[in-house]
Design a protein around this nucleic acid. Structure first.
Length: 489
RNA sequence: GCUCCCAUCGUCUAGAGGCCUAGGACACAUCCCUUUCACGGAUGCGACAGGGGUUCAAAUCCCCUUGGGAGUACCA
């Protein structure tokens, strides 16, 4: 295998999970770094849990994250189809091969019989291993079972396969991230590779698909470690080259349990809906297990790819904390192109009448409110006073900043100067505002901060927010006058 | 239960036997800057899970304990 080929194989039983996104990312990075191919395969074998909307979500999320694939269901490729349900007719051939080679056998056990075996095992505090009672069925016995209407599943003969290729029952492989990993295969029961209904099981289908798609490196979550030994045996039994494996630590919730709905968003699309930028998400998730050699954490996908080495990825689990994600998202919001940011912000401004202001003004509003925010949804509240005629005061603000005698004086003076102000010229406006502050400082010793608080409170109902110049400019003389009038007693 | 994986500040991590008085980032605290909130800058707080070895020397290697995670399906 000379060409580096990796894959991400999500099963569409839900929207693209952030953990799957990270696995996809590491595969993508590995491919980019090594001039390889990144392949997308949809594992929709479980028809009941699969839905088209999930498939669409997976496509859209991966694209949004910038994880573009070289081969996949939509773009095709030399080893398609890339949707597992369209590959059903290719598996029987390999089952046949295994059967012929003696590495697999038919199993007629009923669910009840199997259940009994399991119960027995747990009663004896032993690990459950299939009894193999169907391994040596004679043709007559099979014929009889078949006559009863029983349909066989096909099991893989773990011991036979292992003996053919390994001296010891303990099988080892060199993991790309964890190093030497081993497992006593005598503890692995003969597992089903093809269900009695004719569909392949996961462990079998992945091997066949990866083999046929010439996947050279399999990078996935460490929850697959135990599957790896089964899969290695299948590759060997089929006479196929065994790919290299790399197992990543899992992403945990802050309580160290599996990241799930109750911890908040789990799907990439949910994060986006909440106001996270895909650039920040992918950057953040890259830092879970990987760290840049130069210590600079904010990096583009390309930069990360250039610096990426799979063997340097951490082999332990990592906790997904919002604090750093939020910080990072804020960093991206601050740096993002304002036109693009404005576009992304609009869904969060849907409750306002955006036709009140021009697109150019909207951009100014976003530019002036983007600084302190951490997620896009903060914009909903933070831009509120730019819209509509009236404002809502925050708790206590009116009493403390508008109703006092000093405040009233400031507001009256401010009102009297309004006609002199140049509302269409941001720079001039800033100078005029500065003069206004200075006036109160020199005349009455009032801190500039306090002076501005007063005006700000009267205009926005708050003591903090966007730059005052921008507020005046976007509000325009009429609304400013109106709001000040309402504030003056 | 059995099997496997993992173990450095609260969190993400740097660290491949001496460069470690353990570095960075987030968070937190204080200060500076400032028309507010922020941003930015400075400083501080803060960790090698515990116990045994090996070695002149261990966060780094080995063993045990403890803790956490995963797997144990005719799910994927």
């Amino acid at each position: 295998m000379d060409e580096i080929r990796v894959r991400i194989a999500p099963s569409p039983s839900g929207n693209l999970h952030i953990g799957t996104a990270r696995t996809a990312l590491f595969n993508y990075l590995f491919a980019k770094k090594n001039n390889g191919k990144f392949i997308l395969r949809i594992e929709d074998t479980d028809a009941e849990r699969t839905s088209q909307s999930y498939i669409d979500n997976i496509f859209d999320s991966l694209k949004a994250l910038g994880l573009n694939w070289d081969e996949g269901p939509d773009v095709g490729g030399p080893y398609g189809p890339y949707t597992q349900s369209e590959r059903f007719d290719i598996y029987p051939k390999y089952v046949r091969e295994l059967l012929d080679k003696g590495f697999a056998y038919e199993c007629f056990c009923t669910p009840e019989e199997l259940e009994a075996e399991k119960e027995e095992a747990s009663k004896n505090k032993k690990a459950y291993v299939y009894s193999k009672k169907c391994e040596n069925l004679t043709e007559e016995q099979k014929a009889k079972l078949r006559a009863e209407g029983r349909k066989p599943a096909i099991r893989f003969s773990v011991e036979k396969a292992r003996k053919a290729f390994h001296d010891s029952p303990v099988v080892h492989f060199e993991d790309l991230v964890k190093g030497d990993l081993h497992q006593d295969t005598s503890l692995i029961g003969d597992f089903v590779i093809m269900k009695s209904n004719g569909s392949p099981t996961y462990n079998f289908a992945v091997v066949i698909d990866d083999m046929l798609m010439k996947i050279s490196h399999i990078i996935r979550g460490e929850d697959h470690i135990s599957n790896t030994f089964k899969q290695i045996l299948i590759y060997e039994a089929l006479g196929a080259e065994v790919p290299k494996f790399g197992h990543l630590g899992m992403i945990l919730a802050p309580d160290r349990s599996k990241l799930s709905k109750r911890h908040g968003a789990t799907a990439v699309s949910e994060f986006v809906e909440k106001g996270y930028l895909t650039e920040a998400l992918i950057n953040f998730v890259a830092l879970l297990g990987w760290s840049p050699s130069d210590g600079v954490e904010i990096k583009t996908l390309d930069e990360i790819a250039g610096d990426f080495r799979i063997n340097e990825v951490s082999s332990s689990n990592s906790v997904f904390e919002y604090d750093k994600l939020n910080w990072m998202n804020g960093q991206y919001i601050k740096k993002m192109d304002i036109k693009e940011l404005t576009k992304l912000a609009k869904p969060f401004l849907s409750k306002y009448d955006l036709t009140e202001i021009t697109e150019e003004q909207l951009e100014k509003v976003i530019a002036a409110t983007r600084e302190p925010i951490t997620i896009l949804s903060d914009l909903t509240y933070d831009t509120a006073y730019f819209f509509g005629r009236d404002i809502e005061y925050e708790e206590g603000v009116k009493e403390a900043n508008v109703d006092t005698e000093q405040a009233q004086n400031i507001l009256k003076y401010f009102y009297s100067k309004l006609d002199e102000y140049d509302f269409d010229n941001e720079e001039k406006l800033h100078d005029q505002l500065a003069d206004f502050r200075t006036y109160f400082k020199e005349q009455y010793g009032i801190k500039p901060k306090v002076t501005m608080w007063t005006v700000r409170a009267a205009l926005t109902g708050r003591t903090h927010g966007a730059d005052m110049g921008v507020i005046l400019e976007v509000l325009g003389k009429n609304r400013v006058k109106y709001r000040i009038e309402k504030a003056i007693k």
